[in-house]
Amino acid sequence: MSGPLIDFDRVSQIYAARDGSPVWALSDVSLRVEAGEFVCLIGPSGCGKSTLIHLLAGFLKPTSGAVRFRGRPLDGPGPDRGVVFQEYALFAWMTARQNVEFGLRMQRVSAPVRRRRALEALDRVGLRHAADRYPHELSGGMRQRVAVARALVVEPEVVLMDEPFAAVDAMTRTTLQEDLLRLWRETGVSVLFVTHNIDEAVFLAQRVVVMGAGPGVIREDLAVDLPYPRDRGSAEFGREYARIAAALARGSRGTDQSDGERRAA
């Protein structure tokens, strides 16, 4: 393919605050992601990392600038970009299997094929046995696995994940991260992953994009050149962690300053 898969070209996103004053969620942000890359977006709250995801998903249109996917400007949400939300996005009235089948149903895949592919997708996240359970009968970690299976079964080119593991306990989170890496390498899908957790970013990403708030900007774009699977106890892991923590600290000093200015104003 010529050109990057995802291209944010000098994107700004402005919305009205309660008092009507403009809030810069993103200011002149440019970011390119190649096909098959695993990129983490990290930054303090209000840095616009979720806004980037929402723009690419097609939920928002940029105030200025362009968001291109495969070289073309976006026109609303579509199955070529899967999304995994933080939680409570599985349809509560459908079983795990029916949830996974939903995207295939929209593509008018026949019922037997749909069923087989959904079960395969559930198998890949280790939940074939829970296919006929409703979301309220699943644990938080299992729900997120189903959500990942639901996003992947329609074979999107990129999966957008908005702090998908933030609401599960630490141990479950580790296994979810390992499973996600495995799926990423099996399918070759690109992943754009929002987190506020440095450890998660270093464990998962090939590239960590460090963002800053008020207005939302990209501060640094750091490559993590560690082989998979990564060892959290290794010295290299610690070094990468420190590098990103330092970048975040540099960014947040700027944020504190602007916060102070805003309060003074």
């Binding site: 409570y88 996005a89 929209m106």
Partner: peptide, 19 residues
Amino acid sequence: AYLRSAACLGAGRLATLLL
């Protein structure tokens, strides 16, 4: 999140309404 999930999975207006 429900409406957005449906939209990302390719659901049209009628399917979103009914399902």
